[in-house]
Structure formats: C-alpha cells, structure tokens
Write a protein that binds this DNA or RNA. Structure first.
Length: 121
DNA sequence: AACTTGACGAGGG
DNA sequence: CCCCTCGCCAAGT
C-alpha cells in the first residue's frame, strides 16, 4: 500500500468529508472501516498530506479524544480551536467526550455494548 | 537492505 | 491520569 496512490488516499478523504460539523472520528476507527492495508498510523500519514481546503482534517483526532498535532507543521492548538469553533467541547486537559462527539458513517455504527464502549473510550 | 520516525492504539504499572 | 513498551505500516535516509 502506498499513500502516493491516489485511490488509497481518496478512500480516507471520502470518509473524512462525511463527518458532520461538530463531530469527530478517530484514526483507528477509520482504519477499521477501511480494513486491509490501513492502520491508525497509516491514516495519520495520509492526513498530513490532506488538502486543508477540501478535507475537514481537524475532525480526525486520536482514540483518547485529544488532538495530536503538537509536533508537526501545524500550530499547536489550532486543531482544537477549530473544533471548539464548531461546538466540540474540550476539558482543561485538552480532551473531548467521544461518547458525545464521535461520529460513525452509515452502516458502521457500533452494534453492541462492547463496541460502544470501545468507540467512546 | 537496515534503521529511524511518526497527525496511532492497547495494555500494564 | 501520566508514562512506558510494544505492535503496527509506510516513508525517508
């Protein structure tokens, strides 16, 4: 798998574009939906090449409900600020309530208690 | 071809 | 809740 392959990246962006304003998804969740060849790390790699005008990249955060953009080209806190402007609430430790803001595409909603717990951890 | 480095995730202390 | 370790997979050197 190669992130330079357009189709490979597009499959990720297609999902990200579907996330409604004020909601978020996690890297791991997206990788599980896309399945083979994709891992949380891969999704992150694809996202750094995302066109910020075409993809709501800020709506993809880590599984702990925090933004993990600290060490790269993106200004620290920018992602969180963009999300807060959309209505996502973060606590004093920079964490948001995934049980409340996490979104899943049609057909991929968590089906049982176990998954619900997993997704909102 | 070996080694390092991530916009990651889960588990243990 | 913080910190560390390990597994993960693709890129850059």
């Amino acid at each position: 798998m190669n992130v330079n392959d357009k189709d490979y990246r597009e499959r990720v962006y297609e999902i990200v574009r579907q996330i409604p304003v004020g909601n978020v998804m996690t890297y791991g969740q997206i990788s599980m939906i896309l399945g083979e060849g994709y891992t949380a790390r891969t999704i992150g790699y694809v996202m750094h090449g995302a066109d910020s005008d075409k993809v709501p990249w800020q709506r993809v955060i880590n599984s702990q409900g925090k933004c993990s953009t600290g060490r790269l080209t993106i200004p620290v806190n920018l992602q969180q600020e963009l999300l807060e402007a959309e209505g996502v609430v973060f606590n004093d430790k920079g964490k948001c309530d995934l049980g409340k803001f996490l979104w899943s595409p049609a057909g991929f909603e968590p089906e049982d208690e176990a998954q619900t717990t997993l997704f909102s951890r």
